[in-house]
C-alpha cells in the first residue's frame, strides 16, 4: 500500500532523512519510533505530499507522491502534529468543510459525519465551537477529520498526544480496529503504544532507519543473554559467589535495592529452577524471582543511543533495566 524507496530530504545543508526505505502492506499498522528531530514528521509530510523528497520515490496505493499528488491525497487521511482545526467553526461545521473538500456531498456526507462523530465520541460537543474545546477534544476532532472519508491509508502523527488515559486506550482500540481494512502509519514517543497497537516498528534516528521488525523480534534480536532478577531477604557475602558457581550463569550484578541481584544467563537457558534451589538450600530467604525481558524501551534506547556499539554488551542498558524491574 505504501512503498518508500530511498527517500532523502535535505533542508539546505541539513539532511533531515537519508535514504529511508520501508513499505507498509494493506491492513498493516506500522509505528514510527524515534527521538525528536529524527525525521518522523518529515517522512510523513513527504508521504502526504505536503512536500516532495529531494531524492527517491514514495508511492501510496500505487500513485506517485510527486507525479500524482491529488490522487495520493485522496487515498490518505492525515493527522498532523498539531490538530488542524479551525477555532471559529463548530465540530459539525468543520467536519462538513473537510468532507466537502474531499468531494463528499449530500446524504453521503451526513452519514460519514455521523459515523466519525460516533467513532470518536464527539456527539456531546458536535455543536460547540472548536476554539472552546479542550486539547483532548481537539485531538479527537483532528482524528475524526482524518477518518471522515474512510481512507485506505491513515497517517497519524502522534495521535494520542493530549488525551487522558481512558481516551488513549479508546484511541488505541480504534486504531487496532482499523487494522486489516486500513494501512496505518503512526509516529509516537510512547513506546508501549507501539507494542500495543502495531504489528511492525520502524526505529528512526538522525534520519536513518536503524531497525525495522515486530516489537518482539526487535527485543529478541538485541538480547545477548537471558536475565533473571532475584530479591533475597538475607544475603551473606558469599551468595554472589555461590550464584556464579551455577553452570550457565554468566554474570551477577547487584541491583538497586539491597538484597536484589540481576543475573545474566546463557542465551536460551532457563536457570530459574536452579537458582531457586540454591537460594532455598542456602536459606537466603527468597522473596522474588523473575525473568527480565528487554522492553521496547531498552531496544529503543540501545538503538538510538548506542547505535555504534551494538555488539558490545551495554552496561548502561543492563542497569537501566534493573532499575525498572525494581521499580
Amino acid at each position: 500500500m505504501i512503498d518508500v524507496q530511498n527517500i532523502t530530504k535535505r533542508y539546505g545543508h541539513h539532511t533531515a532523512i537519508d535514504q529511508v526505505t520501508f513499505s507498509v502492506a494493506k491492513g498493516e499498522v506500522l509505528a514510527f519510533l524515534g527521538p525528536n528531530g529524527a525525521g518522523k514528521t518529515t517522512t510523513m509530510r513527504i508521504l502526504t505530499c505536503f512536500m516532495p523528497a529531494t531524492e527517491g520515490s514514495a508511492r501510496v496505493a500505487g500513485f506517485d507522491c510527486t507525479e500524482q499528488p491529488l490522487e495520493v491525497k485522496r487515498q490518505i487521511g492525515y493527522l498532523p502534529e498539531t490538530p488542524p482545526v479551525y477555532q471559529e467553526l463548530t465540530v459539525t461545521e468543520y467536519l462538513t468543510f473537510v468532507g466537502r473538500l474531499r468531494g463528499i456531498t449530500g446524504p453521503k456526507l451526513s452519514s460519514a459525519l455521523d459515523q466519525s462523530i460516533g467513532r470518536l465520541e464527539l456527539g456531546s460537543v458536535r455543536h460547540r465551537l472548536i476554539g472552546n474545546l479542550s486539547r483532548g477534544y481537539r485531538q479527537r476532532v483532528g482524528l475524526a477529520q482524518a477518518l471522515l472519508h474512510d481512507p485506505p491509508v491513515l497517517i497519524l502523527d502522534e495521535p494520542t498526544v493530549g488525551l487522558d488515559p481512558k481516551q488513549i486506550i479508546e484511541i488505541r482500540e480504534l486504531i487496532r480496529s482499523l487494522a486489516g481494512s486500513h494501512s496505518v502509519i503512526l509516529s509516537t514517543h510512547i513506546l508501549p503504544e507501539a507494542t500495543a497497537v502495531c504489528q511492525r516498528v520502524v526505529i528512526i534516528n538522525k534520519g536513518h532507519i536503524v531497525a525495522e521488525d515486530t516489537p518482539e523480534q526487535l527485543s529478541a534480536r538485541l538480547r545477548q543473554s537471558e536475565k533473571v532478577s532475584i530479591t533475597l531477604k538475607t544475603c551473606p557475602p558469599d551468595c554472589e559467589m555461590k550464584l556464579r558457581a551455577i553452570p550457565g550463569i554468566l554474570n551477577v550484578l547487584p541491583g538497586q535495592a539491597g538484597g536484589s541481584f540481576l543475573i545474566e544467563c546463557e542465551l536460551g537457558r532457563d536457570l530459574r529452577d536452579e537458582i531457586a534451589r540454591v537460594a532455598v538450600l542456602s536459606q537466603w530467604g527468597l522473596l522474588e524471582l523473575r525473568t527480565v525481558s528487554m522492553t521496547l524501551e531498552d531496544v529503543f534506547l540501545r538503538l538510538t543511543r548506542h547505535e555504534d556499539h551494538l555488539s558490545e554488551p551495554a552496561e548502561a542498558t543492563v542497569s537501566a533495566s534493573a532499575e525498572r524491574t525494581d521499580a
Binding site: 509530510r45 502526504t48 505530499c49 505536503f50 491529488l70 491525497k73 485522496r74 490518505i76 492525515y78 498532523p80 502534529e81 498539531t82 488542524p84 482545526v85 479551525y86 477555532q87 473537510v98 473538500l101 474531499r102 468531494g103 477529520q145
Partner: peptide, 14 residues
C-alpha cells in the same frame, strides 16, 4: 500560524 495550512495542502484540492 494555526498550522491548518498543512491540512489544506494535504487535502485533495488544487
Amino acid at each position: 500560524k494555526l498550522r491548518t495550512f498543512e491540512f489544506l495542502m494535504t487535502s485533495p484540492i488544487r
